[in-house]
Amino acid sequence: MYTQALNTAESDDRALEDAAKAAQFQARIDAEERIEPNDWMPAAYRKTLTRQISQHAHSEIVGMLPEGNWITRAPTLRRKAALLAKVQDECGHGLYLYAAAETLGASREELVDAMLAGKAKYSSIFNYPTLTWADIGTIGWLVDGAAIMNQIPLCRCSYGPYARAMIRVCKEESFHQRQGYEIMLTLCRGSDEQKAMAQDALNRWWWPVLMMFGPPDAASQHSDTSTRWKIKRFSNDELRQKFVDATVPQAQYLGLSIPDPGMIQDADGHWRYSQIDWTEFKQVLAGNGPCNRDRMAARRKAHEDGAWVREAAAAYAAKRGQRQSAQAAE
C-alpha cells in the first residue's frame, strides 16, 4: 500500500463556491467530523481527493509488478506463498481505493483509463527494477515501511471512505513489512553472497525510498490546503525524518550500512540524511525512470488483453437479464 505526495498545480475554483457553505464545511473539518460521499464539499476538495486516492490506487496496482516479477522465482514454497499473498493484498488495496475514489463521482474505468493514458501518476518507487531476491526483502522492509508512515495518518483523514479504506489496508498490511524484514534478516544471517545481495539491494533502494515521501516541504505547492482539509496531517519532511529515524536502527541490527556516508545523528537523536537528488525524482516522475515504460506497457497489455473477457461478462449479463425478464413476462 503506497501513497505519495505528488502535488501538482490545480486551478483555484474555490472562489466559485458558496462562501457560507465553504465556511461550514471547514468548521466540520476543524471539529474532526468525517465528510461522507453525499455531503456538500468544495469542488477543490473533491478534486484533490479524487486525484490523491486514485494515484494511491494506481500505485497499488502498478506496485504489483516489481514484486510480481519474483513470484515465479521465489526461493522456497513458503516465500512463494507469502509473496503471492502480499502482491494479492496490494491488488485488494488498489481495489478498495478505487472504490473510495468512486464515491467522489469518478468511475473506476475513467480513473484507470486516465492512468493508462499517462494522465495520472503513481508512486515513483515502482519505476525501479527488482533485480535480485533481496529486492523483495528490501521492498517489504523499506517501501512498505515508508508506506505505513504515510498511511497511518490517513486512517484519520477527513474523508470517511478514504479513512475507512486505509484502516482496512493498514490492518491487512501489518504482515508486509515483517515479511520483508524477515527476508533481509535471513539474508544477513546467511552466506557472504547473501549479505552482499542484501547490501546491494539497500544501496539501490535507499534513496528512491526517501523520495517516496514527496518533494521537500519548501518546494511542496499544495500541502497547505491538504493540511487545512485534514487530508494530510504531517508534512513530507516530517514523515521522511520519522521513517529515517525508525529505519537506521533496523539496518544496524541487520548489519547493513545505509548508503549515505554523510549521515549523522544529531543531539536530539535524529538521523540527518544528506541531500536527496531531486533531479532524479523529477526525471522518474516525468516518465524517465528505469521501468516507467515497462510498467505502463504491462498495465496496458493486461487491460487490452482483458477487454474481450470484460465484454463477454457484460454480454452474458445482458442476455441473462433479457431471459429473466422474458420469463417474468410469461
Binding site: I61, M64, G68, Q88, C91
Partner: peptide
Amino acid sequence: LSEWCGHAPMLEEDM
C-alpha cells in the same frame, strides 16, 4: 495461476 497476478482482465480476477 500465480503467473496471472498483476495481469488479469480485472482486479477482481487478480484476486
